[in-house]
Simulated assay, not measured.
Amino acid sequence: MRKALLLALAALFPSLAEAHPHVFAEARLEVISDDAGNIAELRNVWRFDEVFSSSVLMDFDKNKNLKLDPDEAATVGQTVKDSLADYGYYMNINANGKELKVAQPDTINVLYQDGKLLMFFIVKPAEPLPLKGRILLGVWDPTFYTSIDFNRDEDMATDGKAITACKRTVIRPDPDEVMKQNQDKLTAAFFDDPAGTNMSKLFAIQLELQC
């Protein structure tokens, strides 16, 4: 049963996929601070493309009523929660040059609306993350199979009294410049490497906080 679920959601599991975008998601990230001056929560919303969404519906709509009933949606969410744990739920945090991990979310909520699969969940830093110095936050798949995009700068949001003291900048790399500056590294071997190279962060949109 579990193997079947993993295969059905293979596009979300980098170890099962080739390293170039096949699945596309529009995302929103909200960075929440607490009263102690730390980043307390990272709230994620992912809305997937219609092709991928329909494939998930086809595999998990067991009663064939063309929607995800609560139990079916919960199965999708639990599968994603278990399987993306090794990839930190695509959440990337760099605090003053140090890479930080996140704890598992309590749950990944799933809805199927207007022909698209919607996932929303909260992760927390695995260790205290004070709002000091330079902090970079981004959401990306290290293997390039899933493209997670923030269409507007406002889709990388902040909230909380402490975080208002930080300067907020959304960094959007120019893909042409990235390709030009990394021609020797972005070879066919990179795009076909199922293990991933993590060079996808060169193309990733990131939120920079200067506190």
Score class of each variant (00 low, 15 high):
116 K>T: 15
115 G>K: 07
116 K>V: 14
116 K>I: 10
94 N>V: 05
97 G>N: 13
102 V>E: 01
108 I>L: 11
101 K>H: 04
102 V>H: 02
98 K>R: 14
102 V>Q: 05
105 P>D: 00
127 E>R: 10
117 L>S: 06
120 F>C: 00
95 A>M: 01
110 V>K: 05
111 L>H: 11
126 A>E: 10
119 M>P: 03
109 N>P: 01
93 I>V: 15
112 Y>G: 14
94 N>I: 03
115 G>Y: 07
121 F>T: 08
111 L>D: 15
125 P>L: 01
112 Y>M: 13
112 Y>E: 10
93 I>Y: 11
119 M>A: 10
116 K>P: 11
93 I>C: 13
109 N>L: 02
103 A>D: 15
122 I>H: 07
109 N>Q: 09
119 M>G: 05
104 Q>K: 15
125 P>T: 02
115 G>F: 07
109 N>T: 07
113 Q>S: 04
99 E>D: 11
108 I>H: 04
103 A>G: 14
97 G>Y: 11
93 I>A: 12
101 K>R: 06
105 P>H: 03
107 T>G: 09
100 L>D: 01
110 V>P: 04
96 N>P: 12
116 K>Y: 11
114 D>N: 13
110 V>D: 05
110 V>C: 03
119 M>W: 07
101 K>I: 00
109 N>F: 04
115 G>Q: 10
107 T>H: 08
111 L>A: 15
104 Q>G: 12
117 L>M: 02
115 G>L: 04
103 A>M: 13
93 I>P: 13
119 M>F: 10
110 V>A: 03
107 T>Y: 12
111 L>T: 13
110 V>L: 01
100 L>P: 03
97 G>E: 11
121 F>K: 08
123 V>N: 03
111 L>Y: 13
120 F>G: 01
118 L>V: 11
119 M>K: 05
124 K>P: 07
106 D>I: 05
112 Y>F: 15
113 Q>C: 00
110 V>G: 00
101 K>G: 02
123 V>C: 05
103 A>L: 14
120 F>R: 06
109 N>R: 10
114 D>L: 09
125 P>H: 06
95 A>D: 01
120 F>Y: 10
111 L>E: 15
95 A>Q: 01
103 A>Y: 08
107 T>Q: 14
114 D>F: 05
99 E>L: 13
118 L>I: 11
96 N>M: 07
108 I>Q: 03
111 L>W: 09
121 F>V: 06
114 D>A: 12
120 F>E: 06
96 N>D: 11
104 Q>F: 06
114 D>Q: 12
103 A>H: 09
108 I>S: 02
120 F>Q: 04
97 G>L: 14
97 G>M: 14
123 V>M: 04
99 E>P: 05
117 L>K: 03
97 G>T: 14
123 V>G: 03
96 N>L: 04
122 I>T: 15
98 K>E: 14
103 A>Q: 12
108 I>Y: 04
124 K>H: 05
127 E>V: 12
99 E>C: 08
93 I>D: 15
96 N>R: 09
121 F>E: 01
103 A>S: 15
107 T>K: 14
105 P>C: 02
123 V>Q: 02
104 Q>R: 13
98 K>S: 08
